[in-house]
Design a protein around this nucleic acid. Sequence first.
DNA 1: CGCACGTGAGACATTCTTGTCTCATGCGGA
DNA 2: TCCGCATGAGACAAGAATGTCTCACGTGCG
Lengths: 198, 198
Amino acid sequence: MSHVRYRRLMAVDRDHVLRSAAALLTRKSTATMDEVARAAGISRATLHRQFAGRDALVRALEALGIAECEAALAAARTDEGPATDAVRRLVAEIEPHAGLLAFLYSENQLFEGEEQNEGWARIDESVATLFRRGQSSGEFRIDLTPAWLTEALYGLLASAAWAVAEGRVAPKDFTHMIVELLLGGVRRPAEPAARKES
Amino acid sequence: MSHVRYRRLMAVDRDHVLRSAAALLTRKSTATMDEVARAAGISRATLHRQFAGRDALVRALEALGIAECEAALAAARTDEGPATDAVRRLVAEIEPHAGLLAFLYSENQLFEGEEQNEGWARIDESVATLFRRGQSSGEFRIDLTPAWLTEALYGLLASAAWAVAEGRVAPKDFTHMIVELLLGGVRRPAEPAARKES
DNA sequence: CGCACGTGAGACATTCTTGTCTCATGCGGA
DNA sequence: TCCGCATGAGACAAGAATGTCTCACGTGCG
């Protein structure tokens, strides 16, 4: 019984620590274990009891990021309706986690070789499948590979997260900025007199 | 006399070291001073004689990146002709240095506060000016701010550089991928029967 | 030949971070 | 009240990277 109580308390704390760490590392990716602990309001010893080391912490954050991405993919129902709308929903779902994603994205570039978590491969595949679906349906152009579009989406998410964090762009525009640029590009569409497009 | 000789030799070496370091740090941004020295074919002592420390090395790389960006901006003649073509020229000019830029870009996110080199501000302004010019001329849409477009360009450059480095996309497509996505977006343009666009 | 100078190799102290450990404290339950 | 247990504080050793220094070597030049 008390076991259960304690377990639950620890679980709650673990989640809180994880989110604090994510928020801190998003801003300062080189933060030390001591800083992470302090940011979570616990001591370094306790932090170390919950996560065997820095690697374990980062791996836990990676798992969290993967879980959030998969949740976002599921919530966005990327296989339903027009691919265009699915992309909009996906970006909107990911927006709250873009900071963590940006951290993990750059963290992955930090090491060469060193196989990455298989979860990312699944997510890459889901996103690429969405783009591929859009190409098949004729919504998307076919001269840009799904792999590149996937990478580009990550890059735009990270850029936007950093730009927002540093106050260079307004947070409220986050989803709009990314979706509009990704879908429509910067070139102004040649206005064909009047058309159904608003 | 010998002064001149030695100065010139050192300058050449310095440039070689800088480029080796750029190439290495592009792949492994956490490379140690010893690895950087080894990559340049010199000893750690000599590396230290040319660059007071790691900070000095990174700052020198930053200066190199800034110089290359400014050279690219100049070579692309961003204030001439259609902004669309100017963007194409700019990306093409930057392509060879995208790896270094990606390293510096993520390096800048590593620290909070810590004022960044003013050179970046000038470059940001030049790029933003290009986008603003495109908006004024009616080539570009006006619902995306020049600041965001600038950030997005950096993000796409970094994404593409990493994707190429890891073999996820073909190097030869670099400029095409970035320019086409940035300018036209992923959405397939509604085909208005026949039009001047090829 | 002899000298000056850049260089490589390596020793060394220093600093930072990590990981482990111990101990006192406080809180909650039995 | 008493006990169990998680926590915080801090000491400690180990490892990595850095920065500094010395010394021997080789090359080029006078």
